[in-house]
């Protein structure tokens, strides 16, 4: 559906996307993770044919965005990071008007609008102006709008940022339904649980480059351990126990109030730590998550 090699985007002398290779297969949900400024949106914008690439090769639905942007855009759906609804028009008008740009007749556009209102659970707000709607409702409307042309490929740039848990779960359910129908999806997100839930495969981007690639479980297996033991101490005293527990884990991370021990067997490591006289305020054994992978790959410092 999308294939890129050496894809690059520069703004002046600044390189936002630095020669990435990706291959998105039909029917899969593909994720982009990465800290702020990693180049996720820049990549999404090149794929959605609104931003010309600065270098490399890119094919979307088998076509080159430089030459067949309109043909590609006709068959994809785009949820931009920043909503761009018409706040003066009604919810329904936003959908109906948007469908028109895809060559859909006025009456068919109206039917489509009603169907999508149902889909986004906005039917009772159909006639209200967009402006006073809550952020979550606007986001749902933007997502509904991206579906007016029944896209084969859906690009979602941080679709759930700002949504409450109910709305996020509603959206996950909808995206899952679309996946069942065979719609290929590319998603960027800062929520690791979302990526784990939704994505078949994902890449982690950092400073314009891809630093890791695989399915969520593959990434966890490759970059983290099965379990993590968290030992909590009075802030400042955590450092003292490092020598005793060092040998118990594959890798140790020292946080201001905690030690994280990456290990295949958390409970085993915990009892071994107790035996060696380590007395944390509290402890917790948990499964490794994508968040551990993400933080390992992109560091804990803020980049922006």
């Amino acid at each position: 559906m999308v294939s890129a090699t050496g894809l690059t985007k520069t703004f002046g002398s600044f390189t936002a996307v630095d020669g990435i290779d990706i291959e998105v297969r039909p029917g899969e949900v593909f994720g982009f993770l990465g800290p702020n400024g990693a180049g996720k949106s820049s990549t999404m914008r090149m794929i959605s044919c609104v931003s010309p690439r600065s270098g490399g090769d890119l094919a979307v639905l088998g076509m080159d965005p430089d030459r067949r942007a309109a043909q590609i855009k006709a068959r994809i759906g785009v949820v931009p990071q920043q909503d761009n609804l018409d706040t003066e028009l009604t919810v329904r008008q936003n959908l109906q008007i948007y469908a028109r740009y895809f060559g859909i007749s006025w009456s068919k556009a109206g039917e489509k609008a009603d169907e999508l209102l149902e889909f986004a659970q906005l039917t009772d707000r159909a006639k209200s102006r967009v402006d006073p709607l809550s952020g979550g409702m606007k986001r749902r409307l933007t997502i509904a709008r991206s579906l007016v042309n029944e896209p084969e490929l859906l690009l979602l740039d941080e679709p759930t940022t700002g949504l409450d848990p109910q709305a996020r779960h509603l959206l996950w359910d909808r995206l899952y339904r679309l996946k069942q129908e065979g719609v290929t999806q590319i998603i960027t997100t800062h929520y690791m649980d979302e990526a784990e839930q939704l994505c078949d495969r994902l890449v982690v981007m950092d400073a314009g480059k891809i630093v890791a690639e695989g399915s969520p479980s593959e990434l966890i297996a490759q970059y983290s351990t099965k379990e993590v033991l968290e030992l909590r101490f009075t802030p400042g005293t955590q450092q003292d126990s490092v020598p005793q527990v060092e040998a118990l884990a594959d890798r140790i991370e020292v946080l201001p109030d905690r030690l994280l021990l990456y290990t295949a067997d958390g409970e085993g490591a915990l009892s071994a730590a107790h035996q060696r006289g380590v007395e944390p305020v509290s402890s917790l054994v948990r499964r490794s998550t994508l968040e551990d992978v993400f933080l390992r790959l992109t560091g804990r410092q803020l980049v922006d």
Partner: peptide, 23 residues
């Protein structure tokens, strides 16, 4: 392909008219 989009590219002259319809 599992799904086929119903979107199509409108003729060049119709694009501006769709913007006018919106306006």
């Amino acid at each position: 392909m599992a799904v086929a989009s119903i979107g199509r590219v409108v003729p060049a002259w119709q694009g501006p008219l769709l913007y006018v319809e919106y306006s």
